[in-house]
Write a protein that binds this DNA or RNA. Sequence first.
DNA 1: CTATCGAATGTGATATTGTAACTCGTTCGA
DNA 2: TCGAACGAGTTACAATATCACATTCGATAG
Lengths: 152, 152
Amino acid sequence: MGAHHHHLHQGESLREAAAQQLKARGEQWTEMRAAVFEALAEFDKPASAYDIAEAVSKRLDRRIAANSVYRILDLFVTTNLAMRVESANAYVANAHPGCLHDCIFLICDNCGSTSHIDDDKLSSGVRDAAAAAGFEAVRPVIEVRGKCGTCD
Amino acid sequence: MGAHHHHLHQGESLREAAAQQLKARGEQWTEMRAAVFEALAEFDKPASAYDIAEAVSKRLDRRIAANSVYRILDLFVTTNLAMRVESANAYVANAHPGCLHDCIFLICDNCGSTSHIDDDKLSSGVRDAAAAAGFEAVRPVIEVRGKCGTCD
DNA sequence: CTATCGAATGTGATATTGTAACTCGTTCGA
DNA sequence: TCGAACGAGTTACAATATCACATTCGATAG
């Protein structure tokens, strides 16, 4: 099995872990970045950059352009604080920053909720299959569209 | 191994196979659909709906709106004549219509070229992992971003 | 202390991707 | 021959993403 334990964070603890992670990379943990991260973490579904821009605008009580949000989301994705759900053009916070996986998203087409599982055996299988085809895998995108348990 | 043989089509033969496949589904093979399919098949990379609209406009020497192309691409995707590459917001023709797979795309971030492999073992592994998490998989999206053999 | 340098953010414009609503003409069967 | 179904055209619009350039602000060399 590819199962293993993570140190899962939430709320205050998650914010703190994210801040540490970013600083460890030599990046700053600014108010803007904190606001984007918190807004992202509070969504229970993948959020688009525009969703986040709106949430942050309310939170800070001034208009934040999508532009700025994209910049920060890109940073978060490269530093593993967030992940992009390609098939939804949206983003989710990483509940265990510091832990690197090729994660597998399960996206419910009915309610939009998204969970993710890590299965290193599967993802390395994908990487191996790519390698066997003479392709150097950098970022596997494994997402499953379907119906979640509560939408049956 | 999940390897197996396909009847690969190309050019005239591919067009013909696509037409048959669509008609078998009770859909019409119209001039417009043929033009979209041929334009799509001639791209050596995933093509966006707008790329195709432009190509078809030239081919037919009149303006074709992206709108119409989307309708036809949607039809192609549901009938397995084409597939959508989620991480590229683009489409590719299916070189073996009639044969149904969860296919795995390998997309080169350098040159944009895309190949695809079928590995039923891997994709069923993904489906099983989803099922184990209480999720009913409908459409697995497995795409690998990286560097292709000729871009090393 | 001040000059200045670079990182972060702001701002507005624009490009790209994707839908909706409505129309018209053709086909095909009742 | 009527009309329902379908393919396609057209316009408008919504959602997603990027670009170029201006401004702010903190760190630090002088």
